[in-house]
Amino acid sequence: MDLLSILSNSLRGAFGPEAAIYALAAVGLNLHFGYTGLLNFGQVGFMLVGAYGTAVPVVAWGLPLWVGILIGIACAIALALLLGVPTLRLRGDYLAIATIAAAEVLRYIYRSEWAEPLTGGVFGITQFANDFYDFNPFSGPFVVGPFNFSANALWVMTVGWGGTLLACGLVALLIHSPWGRVLRSVREDEQAARSLGKNIFSYKMQSLILGGVLGALAGSLMAINTQALTPDVFMPILTFYLWTIMILGGASRIMGPVLGAIVFWFLLTFLDSLLRQAIGTGVIPSGWLESSDVGAIRFAFVGLGLMLLMMFRPAGLLGKQKELRLDVR
């Protein structure tokens, strides 16, 4: 077995474009859940409207890509209002139900025959992000030792991680302001915040919109990264990867989602490479495990890892473990 290549694969996974995209979407989710206590189980819905908002105007109407990105953001705001207005005045679980349902409904609408002229239905749309790659400052691939990224991947990574860090910076500024104090008080006890004159509905709405827009930007980048968009990329399971990432890194920590995404993608690619090599070299006898099983097995291992984490570091890698004990009176 070639350990060096396993390791380099894993590191590529950990810092690759996908990790950046997931991190950005998880920063939005962290604003929702970690800081406001909103149960959003449909972050993938925001990614979907962001991705299609970006691609459709370019392909269908020939608009420039940056207009598409703005339209993606506008779609996320509309979705947040649509979800928030009826549910944010109610108990927390209503938002959870509404978001999980809305994300699935949206996926079915975007893949329906009815929407096909715009979205390309199940076949999706391709080649809409050439504007983005025209701006690529990198001319050749990046090769240092075992690392190897194409120029385009490098460009997406730069924008993705740069954007994620900017988003983290913005969240940090917001959370450490009086605005963030109200947000966290809503998470702790809505009634107490209300008794002190805070309009909690408005704050929950602002949080839902802001986190949703971050999700939409992640969706845009996801579309741009592959230059190919199909609705079935946006399965509900993606939302749960984002939750895993947030909890892994530590909810309500600024850098939690970033570390979570890196660790998540490291583990995923590490297990993938390791198992494939083990099968290929006969360390795991064929008949025990086929390489076609690897995709599923690695998620089982991630699940196991998450269980161990919850047992030994329940507040996540960066979380303050002390905070969790506070609920005990």
């Binding site: 104090r181 998470r187 702790e188 009634q191 309500s252 506070l326």
Partner: peptide, 8 residues
């Protein structure tokens, strides 16, 4: 029933 904002 007091409503302390625990994690503030």
């Amino acid at each position: 029933l007091t409503k302390a904002l625990m994690r503030l």
